[in-house]
Design a binder for these strands. Structure first.
Lengths: 180, 180
DNA sequence: TCCGTCATGTAAATGGTTACATGATTCG
DNA sequence: CGAATCATGTAACCATTTACATGACGGA
């Protein structure tokens, strides 16, 4: 079995919920995993071709002409478990906002204030998005076994967003005191 | 002035503190920005060549033969301010741990427990690293204008790490109740 | 003398985004 | 009919890591 990308894992995992088209796959990733994962078409379609060639997913007829419903094969499910057991690779950190803030004396306190305000707004938006996701997950007849796990990832986002807001408030106060 | 990468910004910013070699640059990024930024030699050296060619950094003689001390030119400093003012680009999210947890029903509660335990340990380690960084920054005769900004970025890491720990504890409890 | 660290660089492979091209279907 | 959405794919480009090659210097 050749090299496996992170994308392969994500694609196999989403298909384990239910068969779908490449387009729907991207949609599902955006709406359900959007807070901690992303894939573009340019990744998804080549990945599906590869996985099809390896016999890990099967392509059946979709509703529309030319569209294909991709589903996991037995081999695909086995592969999925294998990939899931591998230790997660963490992307090297790259936070442009903190980089700028670290060199804030170059930028000036006012511009830093804007920077942190924007970061706070993003965290607030994330919190709203997560609140909606939580309502949906808690009410919808989503597959019983996966619901608790979905809520755990939502909670991770909530903790992270609340921390970001608290930090932003503290930092905006400091910044305010720095240049009155 | 041609395309500017994120790496250009980081390199120019670090050189604005003091002139140094490419090697020292990477070291400084690892020790001071390590919590939210990273660069590899394969990025740094080509970036330095480009910046030299564009007249943004000047290369002087270093201590050793063959080594060169890179310092910001006036044009480089102007460029730095320009790049700092650009809105930070945020990398698309990719959290392998949360991806696996979301599909936790495939993996099983026990393996998820390991996953979250590991994440918690990483957050604890980060907190220790940040505590050391804070002590150093607060005591050292670091350039007065930049100290408050350094502390803000340290605080960001602390908030984030504490949130990760709180989430992990909550999640481990849920996971424990899920499979007794 | 030999090892670890300081130091500079290149080449290959990878992983990913963006933009583009194309066309079917649905709904107002 | 026309616009939005569903759908599949490719090509170009970009950033980045990894591994490698090379060598100087300092100290045990």
């Amino acid at each position: 079995m050749p090299r496996a990308t992170q994308t392969d894992l994500a694609v196999l995992a989403v298909l384990s919920i239910e068969p779908m088209t490449g387009y729907a796959l991207r949609d599902a990733i955006r709406t359900h995993l959007g807070a901690f994962w992303s894939e573009s078409f340019g990744q998804i379609y080549p990945a599906l071709s590869r996985l099809r060639a390896d016999g890990l997913v099967a392509a059946g007829e979709g509703d529309r002409s030319g569209s294909s419903l991709h589903s996991l094969t037995a081999a695909g499910r086995a592969r999925l478990v294998e990939l899931m057991r591998e230790p997660p690779v963490s992307a090297p950190p790259r936070n442009g906002m903190l980089l700028r803030l670290f060199f804030g004396s170059v930028l000036g306190a006012a511009a830093c204030h804007d920077l942190v305000t924007e970061a706070r707004a993003q965290a607030v938006a994330m919190l709203e998005y997560l609140a909606a996701a939580r309502r949906e997950t808690e009410s919808d007849p989503v597959g019983l076994p996966q619901r608790p796990y979905w809520l755990m990832t939502i909670s991770a986002g909530e903790h992270s967003a609340r921390a970001a807001i608290a930090w932003a408030d503290e930092t905006l106060a400091t910044l305010g005191a720095l240049s009155p």
